Computed example of a mutant assay.
Amino acid sequence: MSHIALVTLVVDDYDKAIAHYTEALGFELVEDTDRGDGSRWVVVRPRALDGTTGGTTGAAGTGLLLARAKDDAQRASIGAQTGGRVGFFLYTDDFARDHARMTAAGVRFVRETRHEPYGTVAVFEDLYGNLWDLLQPA
């Protein structure tokens, strides 16, 4: 069986990105390893729906590899990696709880909550302007 383990997200600063994803979005920091050349291997991942952590080989799902931009071309892609479309989908088992927690943490929801046949959803921006769905499946 195969699965997508990591998706790279280009950021401007490791520590600022770690703080946003762990504090505002409630992700876990899975790994933060200095690579010796000024770069780091930084992986964050949503906690499992039951609130547990998955560790580096756990079953908590796909993680984000936070990669600091190294040049102007990479810096230009920060926040625009999906061309302005919703590019990330954060599933929840309790929409109201997570929406309230994220709002209190300063996360900016850019589209109102909707109730669709597939579930309850609202669009938010991460620290860099990337669009995400917060989604509780029906």
Rank of each mutant, 00 (worst) to 15 (best):
T92G: 11
G55K: 01
A138C: 02
L6C: 12
T22V: 07
H99Q: 02
R45V: 11
H99T: 02
W132R: 03
G119R: 06
G54M: 01
E28C: 00
L25G: 13
T82C: 10
A60K: 04
V30L: 10
F124M: 03
T62C: 10
A96F: 04
A100H: 01
Q74F: 04
D93T: 15
G26D: 06
L66Y: 05
Y14W: 01
A76T: 07
A76M: 12
T103R: 08
T113D: 14
A104F: 01
G83E: 09
F95I: 10
G38P: 04
G58D: 08
A122S: 12
H20D: 11
D32V: 09
T120F: 09
F27A: 06
F88C: 10
V86K: 10
V42A: 11
H99C: 03
G58T: 06
A24T: 02
P117T: 15
R114C: 03
L134S: 07
T113W: 09
V123D: 06
Q136A: 15
T22M: 00
P117I: 13
R114M: 05
D13A: 04
E112Y: 07
G84V: 03
A69R: 01
P117Y: 15
V110T: 14
G36D: 08
M1E: 10
Y21K: 03
L29F: 03
R75A: 08
T52V: 08
R108S: 09
G79L: 07
A73Q: 12
S2I: 08
A48Y: 08
T22R: 00
T33A: 14
G26Q: 00
F95W: 05
Q136G: 11
A67G: 13
A104K: 04
T53S: 01
D98K: 06
